[in-house]
Each structure stands twice: as C-alpha cells, then as structure tokens.
C-alpha cells in the first residue's frame, strides 16, 4: 500500500485517493496549433523514476494533490496542494515533504 500524507487529513492509504495522472502536462491555449494539443493530450514522458502526478483525496477532504513519487520504488518524496492559491486560502503549507519512511511502497 502506498501512503500519501494529505496536508488536511494526514497520512492515509492510497486506496482513499484516485490517481489523476501526469502533473507535468501543460495544456496550450485554446487557439494553439493542433500539434501543441496533440502533444499535450497524447504524449507522455513516462519516466522510470521520480514522477510528478496528481492524486485526489476522494475518500477524505476531496483535495487535488500534487505528488512526486518514484515509479520503480513507489517512494513518495513530495506532497502539496495542487492549486497554488489553496495554500494561502487555507493556511496549509504549500509544500510538504514527507519523511522517507512514511512515503514507502507497499
């Protein structure tokens, strides 16, 4: 079981979360050329190692989180609220780096 340290709810099993995909994808302007949209919608780095990705705490506070997780070991090294304005609005730390031991793989 992967465990994710939610800024609101604390350390929770990943089965409380849904995976929302690659967080490095930058969507282009609506009138950008088709090629830019092709790249954003279809192409992925798909790294073997650290991966920046979104998770949503559907079984908890509902927050969208941005997580850095190693795709080989499943170790999590960073968790933060995905929306940059959320930290200021809620008073929660924008970035929260977990201890190595808490972000372990199954």
């Amino acid at each position: 079981m992967i465990r994710i340290d939610c800024p609101f709810c604390g350390l929770r099993d990943h089965s409380e979360f849904t995976y929302e995909g690659d967080a490095t994808v930058q969507y282009p302007a609506l009138d950008a050329p088709m090629e830019d949209w092709y790249e954003a919608v279809f192409l992925r780095e798909n790294p073997r190692g650290p991966h920046r990705e979104f998770w949503r705490h559907v079984g908890g506070c509902g927050s969208f989180l941005e997580v850095v997780r190693d795709t080989v070991t499943h170790e999590i090294t960073e968790v933060k609220l995905a929306h940059p304005g959320m930290a200021a609005a809620t008073g929660k730390a924008a970035a929260k780096t977990t201890e190595k031991a808490t972000g372990g793989s199954e």
Binding site: H14, Y19, T71, T73
Partner: peptide
Amino acid sequence: FYNSYAQK
C-alpha cells in the same frame, strides 16, 4: 491505475 515500473 497509477504509473509504475514495479513488477510487484
């Protein structure tokens, strides 16, 4: 449903 290269 999450990216993974772990064969476990």
